[in-house]
Computed example of a mutant assay.
Amino acid sequence: MSLKHSLLALLVMLVWGANFVVIDEGLADVPPLLFLAMRFTLVALPLVFFVPMPRAGWRNVVAVGSFMSLGQFSLLYIALHLGMPAGLASLVLQAQVIFTIVIAAFVIKEHPSRRQVVGATIGTAGLALVVIAHGVSAPVVPVLVMLGAAMSWAIGNVIARRAGVASGLSLVVWSALVVPLPALGLSLLVDGTDEVGRALTHLSGTAIASTAYTAIGSSLLGYGIFNSLLARYTASAVVPFVLLVPIVGIATAWVVQDEVPSGLELVGGAIMLAGVAAATVSRRRRVGATREEQISPSSKAELASPTR
């Protein structure tokens, strides 16, 4: 990659890594599911009127939106609301790589290579250490909710891969339509009309800025740059940058929120990232190689991006 494009990739990782802290700060003023509805309304509108619908059929778009957008991010927002540290959340969410490998093996028969099996095993061991280390000093429920978010994202990955969607950006925009109404309805049910009304009529500057950052910066601008890089370069040249996201996320939470991970959490995170690297960074991408060649670079971005 050229220096210019490497710097652009680094910029995207900085945006995506800080995204977790930005979300966490915004949740201080807005209930999580309402905040989610606000974000994805801004992702979908007004672009849905200008970006063509992906050639995957409504069923696949709704399925991807249900798991990759609604399921993943509702659980992510809820986990942060329940007290999940933002930096640790950026790390635990990367378990989606491990889950995707396992689910793809069973659902679309993409049997992992020996390297991927070893990487997934190492990553799982590191993840288990993170969960145990965190559970020693804090409630483990938010971590389990985060794992649910990673699992939902992995299911969405496999659906998107099987569908062979032709445009990653169009899938982001159109699948975002699945989120606002269910999220708003659940928020009204869980939080009550009074709380939802109060939040909407008393939006703070932090909540507005957070919504704009997550929708425009993280989802649209960040994804657009990452997608263009995948269209220009091989996945093996671009995807390794994703491993910087949890590092940026942990560092940002450390500086902004004084979130200091324990030694065991850092060790477990390092082991997990090593496993993820072993499973995803390889010159010989044998798993599903024939099928991967049939999928556009923009669809690969759906499988590689850490957050949208």
Rank of each mutant, 00 (worst) to 15 (best):
S2A: 11
L88M: 02
V117H: 02
M272R: 07
S69K: 04
E265I: 06
A215K: 07
I132L: 08
L45Y: 14
S305W: 15
A231G: 15
S296Y: 06
S2F: 01
L7S: 00
S262F: 11
T214C: 15
I122S: 04
M151L: 15
A160K: 09
M84N: 07
E259V: 03
K4A: 01
V118H: 01
T214K: 03
G156H: 02
W174G: 01
L70E: 02
L184T: 01
V256I: 12
L10N: 00
S167P: 06
T307M: 11
D191E: 04
S219L: 06
E293I: 11
P32I: 10
V43E: 08
P54W: 09
R161P: 09
S236I: 12
I132M: 02
L200I: 06
G268P: 10
A63Q: 07
F226A: 09
L36T: 11
A104D: 06
V276G: 05
R55N: 15
Y233P: 08
I103A: 07
S69H: 15
A207R: 05
W153N: 14
S170D: 13
A199T: 03
A154E: 05
P182K: 13
L243C: 08
I155Y: 13
L91A: 12
M272P: 07
L11Q: 01
A95R: 06
P54T: 02
P240S: 10
A212R: 10
L27I: 03
V260P: 10
L88F: 12
G126K: 05
V196C: 01
S6T: 10
R291C: 08
E265S: 07
L203Y: 09
R232E: 13
R114D: 09
L230Q: 07
L34W: 06
L3M: 14
G119L: 08
N60A: 13
G275T: 03
V196G: 03
I108H: 05
D24K: 14
G135T: 00
G205S: 09
A199G: 09
S305Q: 09
A251N: 08
L76C: 08
S152T: 09
P246E: 04
V62Y: 07
V12F: 11
D24E: 13
I216Y: 12
R283W: 14
M53R: 13
Y213D: 05
V130S: 00
A120H: 02
G148Q: 10
Y223I: 03
P46K: 13
G126E: 02
I295S: 13
M151A: 08
A278L: 15
P85N: 10
M84Q: 09
V141N: 07
T124K: 05
V15F: 01
K4H: 00
T201F: 14
A138C: 05
V158S: 07
P31K: 03
G268V: 06
E25N: 12
P142W: 00
G87F: 01
V242Q: 11
A251R: 02
L127Q: 06
A278E: 05
P54S: 03
L144C: 01
L75K: 10
L47K: 11
V12E: 03
S69A: 11
G288H: 14
Q94A: 04
I108C: 06
I295E: 08
V260S: 06
A154R: 05
P85W: 08
